[in-house]
Amino acid sequence: MIPDMWSMKARMNNQMLVVVCKDLLALISRITNKFPKVGSGDYSYDPEGCIMTYKHWKEQSDIIIVVNHYDPPGIYISNISSSDRTPLRFTVAMEDVELTVPLELGYDVTTSTLYWSDYTKNTIERYSFDTNQHEVFLSKKINQVNGLAVDGPGKKLYWTNAASIFQNRNQNRIEVINLDGTDRKILIDTGLSVPSAIEIDTTNGYLYWTDVVLDKIERVKLNDLSTRTALVTTGLNFPSGLVLAVPHGKMYWCDWNNKVIEEANLDGSNRRTILTGHVTYDIDIYRNYLYWTGVKGVYRVDRKTGKSSKQSSDSRLNDPKGLYIFKK
């Protein structure tokens, strides 16, 4: 017997909210092993059994945002749960925004604004989910931006700027700017080769970054740049991703060439390998899990047990790079 079902469409802030009865969704998924297309694109199944747009996910659940570098270029969004029974179901994060080769992500939780770098346009761009406004935030003296870190409460954006092999290596920099576009500054422009992932510890006032050619993880006190310290200098081979778990006093990184995910204290001590044998590019933390982008998908590993699994088989994630997880 077909279950009771209903649907409702309403236009809110120029977006179409599509709500589909969870019984219908569950029925179709059992028959086809897929979630249906609704409206103008794929929508994701939220914990309450409805498929919704970004604004409504944000109100009800945690979300994950992933960049696909090219073929096709895209930025995708899904709700996220620690349950094994809730796989990631991605939809396009932004309609009518032209992307060429997006690479890295940053997110301002205070204004629901997504930042990303574009590899070929040499830009940092942003999109407000609250107002549906897109703009090129920075385009001057931008090279390859391998990492973005947004301090929403402090209203600042930090990024790593790497020169190409055809450019002056002095263009390797770590920079900061206010989120209103004022007071752009170079924080560090020496002792860098290809600065990559970047993370900010707002609690203790530190900025962390990796260098994928010098194979280092370093940090500096933002109010005293003379405190620059190399935390991890051995056993690295292209440390492309980094995430901090400040309340637990830990940092995690993924190493592209070594195919590992590792853990250490925030000062670099007590280093431990969590996962081996997987190509990893970027990494973020969610509850007891580390999520990473790898070969044609998004994966996760339990930080304590090392048990890993693939979380998405979306064919659009042909070359996933940056990811960000928003936790309510």
Rank of each mutant, 00 (worst) to 15 (best):
D4H: 08
M5S: 15
K9M: 14
A10E: 13
L17C: 07
V18M: 11
V18R: 04
L25N: 05
A26S: 15
S29T: 12
R30W: 05
I31Q: 09
P36A: 13
G41A: 12
D46Q: 06
I51E: 03
T53L: 13
Y54F: 15
H56N: 13
I63H: 00
P72Q: 14
P73T: 10
P73R: 05
D84M: 06
F90R: 03
T91I: 09
E95C: 07
V101L: 09
P102K: 03
Y107P: 03
N122R: 14
T123V: 10
R126T: 06
Y127V: 04
Y127F: 15
Q133W: 01
L138N: 04
I142M: 11
Q144L: 15
V145M: 05
G147F: 05
L148F: 05
K155W: 00
W159M: 10
F166T: 14
R169S: 15
N172V: 08
N178T: 05
L179I: 02
K185L: 14
D189T: 04
S196P: 00
T202S: 12
L207N: 04
W209D: 04
V213T: 10
V213P: 00
V213F: 05
L214E: 13
D215S: 14
K216I: 15
V220S: 02
V220I: 11
K221P: 02
L222W: 02
L225K: 01
T227A: 07
P239G: 04
G241V: 04
L244E: 02
L244Y: 01
G249I: 03
D255W: 00
N257V: 12
N258T: 14
G268H: 01
G268M: 02
T273Q: 14
L275N: 02
H278P: 00
H278C: 09
D282E: 13
G294H: 04
D302I: 04
K307L: 15
K310W: 08
Q311K: 12
S312H: 03
S313H: 14
S313W: 10
S315H: 09
G322I: 08
K328S: 11
